[in-house]
Write a protein that binds this DNA or RNA. Structure first.
Length: 828
DNA sequence: GAGGGACCTCTATCT
DNA sequence: GAGGTCCCTC
């Protein structure tokens, strides 16, 4: 998308004027109020609501600081209060603070909260995603980065096409090497700040195998240069290069940003860390907040070593651990901790909570993917009475899983919103419109030109465009420039009239684009391009929907022109290139949210469903195949951990015994190996037929059923340790301290993964199977220790064998005293 | 050069 | 199940 712009002011914009201060929040202390760090700390409203660790993280402002923030530990609160503190204590003016996040949504939320604390002066902060900050820097640094100010940003799609063209130019068959792999290689190189001529490039895995990758990288860079385009990787790499090469500019910039803060630091890559080091080179005031247990982006170049090695990189860096969880019930916290503790490479935090045990985790084993989806819909409907739909979320490993859940929710008339998957800005008609915007604003944007000139069809075909591509390469210019040149020197051939007409329209629009407001220009382009007309002429329902999407695009443009910093059409294009799935999250829409686990990071809901817990999905097949390499499985486990820790009160885990892939026939699945890390006594099983029941008993029930129907199933379901094959590490005896009334005590004793005893139907009861599963009735007396799947450990206080069934009154450690059927407990 | 039908392959995850 | 690609016809 077209990024840069003619907005190149002085090298760095002068400090913005101080705006009138308008207090919006009770904790607002006004701009520039100087606090002495002594007694005021005790009483300052910014600090009183924080716990000791949070307060330390907020007030330790000079030098480097690493804040290790566990899930739900009030991380955002720390960042926002720290920014407010910096300003309130007079350490910095808003424009001297740079705060970076990973998604626009996180940035937006953060800004909102800071405005509440500080008032309107918060608008002068530099706050945004790494990539949007990259665009902003690059605009100001364009001259130092060999870019025209009107540069274009290629999205993943554009860059894949450019990769394909680069490969074609080299005579590289896309059958031999898929362009996607080359693109991935280039992306990794850029994440590590490696240019095509860097000898270290040869150390990357693919490069060693094949020199072609490096040649393709070179040709790809040439494609970008001629199109005056940058890709996502460049948004970080180019500023880094420019600042390395121009130390004076770097120093100037670093002095301007006196305090730099970073959220989700565990997911930064090499280039991002380089940028941070450069931006803080003058003062070293860098505060990073993250959680190594939530590092889930290594595949995108994130280096968890950034966070693990931070204290070494910044000698003398302070470290603050936030370990108190304010989000989830003790049960959810204990279960998720049991899962993540299986990982070896951790900083090691011990999360604790004062929250009560809450409800047990609900586990569901469905027959097929549709059954699983129907169960989710049923549970959602049941939860509706307790909680709003917008407090319920369904998470899955891959977008492909959303469809069947959507169908079930729709059938049950439950409103939902899918985050990601098919994005608005990826719809064909929207991309066509954006291509026209680009063709008008960015004269050398090759991808924009190629798409615009063929949509709507105007008789310029592949043969013509290929010829223009060759010429562009020969002359070292962009494809649209080559097209114009061919018109000038009369080599355009058969397409001459069509191309002439196309450029006439584009040029006319370009003149208007310089002067008129963005929404006006946008509407005019839709009209003059013929896009809208072509769709209207189709007169089908589908075409009508597409026209509506174009109207929606214009509405988005209007909104942009009313609110954004850069209100031009160019600014709009830059923004659409950088929108993420989670950014579209509407607030309080009264709808169930559906998204991938990756998209769920940083969010929280009262009720969470994690579906498709099967080997091959979570953990993903590729991670299983790579076992042992790069800790792929550990990252998958962290992904499961992230999913679980999004839940405040109700957590549901499910898998299907059979699942369809690619719309084909159902295939047998194996339950996720991570399920065996979830302590069974924190779970109940809901089979979808009656009330949820304790897991031990219901698994026996399942075993009976599946022994008849699916002999292969029982092998997978929560077998005793070892039945799955030896666990990678000895099962940890998990104990999550729960602080209640000032006393710390473990929640659940010896919660160990799996202590359920489903057995293979054909090899008889296991020796260590509890008596109930061997058909003997265990005997109980007062004082007997028993275990219940939902309530945990307890002690029998009364035995009643007068009725048909043995009844026990049990004093549970956490759940209190209960009277229940002896069949629901087993000796502990 | 456009358009339509048959066939294929494909899925992680995302700025 | 669906988008992309190939091939054929107009």
């Amino acid at each position: 998308m077209c990024g840069g712009g003619a907005l190149v002011h002085s090298r760095f914009a002068p400090d913005p004027p101080i705006r009138a201060h308008r207090c919006l929040g009770p904790a607002c202390t006004g701009p520039g109020r100087v606090l002495d760090s002594g007694p005021a700390m005790e009483t300052d409203p910014l600090l009183t609501s924080l716990n000791d660790e949070q307060r330390r993280a907020v007030t330790t402002v000079d030098g480097a600081l690493l804040v290790l923030a566990g899930a739900g530990s009030g991380k955002t609160r720390v960042i926002t209060h720290r920014i407010a503190w910096l300003i309130a204590s007079g350490k910095a003016r808003p424009w001297q603070i740079l705060a970076m996040t990973f998604t626009n949504k996180a940035a937006g939320e953060m800004k909102e909260r800071i405005v509440r604390l500080l008032g309107e002066s918060a608008n002068d902060l530099w706050l945004g995603t790494f990539h949007s900050v990259g665009v902003r820097l690059l605009r100001q640094l364009a001259g130092y980065a060999n870019l025209q100010p009107s540069f274009t940003i290629y999205d993943a799609d554009d860059s894949l096409r450019a990769t394909g063209r680069a490969m074609k130019a080299l005579g590289l068959s896309d059958k031999l090497v898929p362009p996607k792999r080359v693109q991935h290689f280039i992306d990794r190189a850029k994440n590590r700040c490696l240019l095509p001529d860097d000898p270290r490039l040869a150390a990357l895995p693919d490069a060693r195998r094949d020199r072609l990758f490096i040649d393709a990288y070179k040709a790809y860079e040439d494609e970008l240069r001629r199109a005056n385009a940058v890709d996502f990787g460049d948004l970080l790499l180019r500023p880094v290069q420019a600042l390395h090469a121009h130390k004076d500019v770097c120093a100037q910039l670093s002095q301007r940003f006196r305090y730099v803060l970073v959220d989700e630091f565990q997911d930064t890559n090499f280039a991002q860390f380089e940028l941070l080091k450069l931006l803080t080179s003058a003062h070293g005031n860098l505060c990073v907040v993250g959680d190594d247990d939530q590092s889930i982006y290594s595949w995108r170049g994130a280096e968890v070593s950034n966070i693990l090695g931070f204290p070494t990189q910044f000698a003398g860096a302070g470290v603050v651990k936030l370990e108190r969880n304010y989000r989830s019930t003790a049960t959810i916290l204990a279960a998720s901790t049991a899962v993540v503790q299986r990982n070896a490479g951790r900083h090691g935090k011990v999360l604790w909570t004062e929250a009560g045990a809450g409800d047990p985790i609900v586990v569901h084993v469905a027959g097929g993917d549709r059954d699983e989806a129907e169960w989710v819909a049923k549970r959602v409907a049941a939860l509706r009475g307790k909680v709003g739909l917008d407090e319920i979320a369904v998470f899955y490993r891959a977008n492909a899983l959303s469809r069947v859940i959507e169908d079930a929710l729709r059938a049950s008339r439950l409103p939902y919103v899918v985050i990601g998957g098919f994005r608005f800005f990826e719809r064909a008609e929207v991309k066509d419109a954006l291509a026209w915007f680009r063709a008008v604003l960015c004269p050398d944007d090759t991808e924009g030109f190629l798409r615009a000139v063929q949509n709507p069809k105007r008789g310029v075909g592949d043969t013509t465009l290929e010829g223009l591509g060759d010429r562009a390469r020969r002359d070292g210019i962009s494809v649209p420039a080559a097209a114009r040149r061919s018109l000038d020197d009369g080599t355009a051939g058969r397409s001459r009239a069509k191309l002439t007409e196309f450029f006439a329209v584009v040029d006319r629009l370009r003149v208007a684009a310089e002067t008129d407001a963005a929404p006006v220009v946008g509407a005019r382009i839709l009209k003059a391009s013929g896009l809208q007309q072509a769709l209207e002429a189709e007169d089908t329902q589908e075409a009508t929907d597409r026209v509506q999407n174009l109207q929606e695009l214009l509405r988005a443009l209007e909104e942009h022109a009313g609110t954004a910093e850069d209100r031009t059409l160019r600014g709009f294009l830059a923004r659409t290139a950088l929108v993420a799935d989670t950014d579209q999250l509407g607030d309080g829409q009264g709808r169930v949210s559906m998204m991938t686990v990756h998209a769920a990071k940083g969010l929280e809901y009262d009720a969470v469903f994690v579906v498709g817990l099967e080997d091959g999905l979570l953990p993903h097949q590729n991670a299983i195949a790579d076992e042992g390499r790069d800790g792929g499985l550990e990252e998958e486990r962290r992904l499961f951990y992230v999913a679980m820790t999004r839940a405040r009160r109700w957590l549901h885990l499910s898998y299907a015994r059979q699942r369809r892939r690619f719309g084909g026939a159902p295939i047998e699945t194996t339950p996720s190996r991570f399920l065996q890390d979830v302590p069974t006594d924190l779970c109940v099983l809901d089979d979808g037929w009656g009330p949820a029941r304790p897991l031990a008993r219901s698994t026996a029930w399942l075993r009976e059923r599946t022994a008849q129907e699916e002999p292969s199933f029982a092998r997978g379901a929560w077998g005793p340790a070892g039945r799955w094959g030896a666990p990678s590490r000895p099962p940890a005896a998990v104990s999550v301290p729960v602080r209640a009334g000032g006393v710390t005590r473990p929640l659940g004793i010896g919660l160990r993964a799996p202590d359920l005893h489903a057995t293979d139907p054909d090899d008889g009861p296991a020796d260590d199977a509890p008596a109930i599963q061997r058909g003997e009735a265990p005997s109980y007396q007062r004082g007997s220790r028993v275990r219940h799947a939902g309530f945990g450990l307890g002690q029998v206080v009364e035995v009643d064998d007068t009725g048909a069934n043995l009844k026990l009154t049990v004093q549970f450690r956490l759940a209190g005293t209960k009277r229940l059927d002896a069949r629901y407990v087993r000796p502990a």
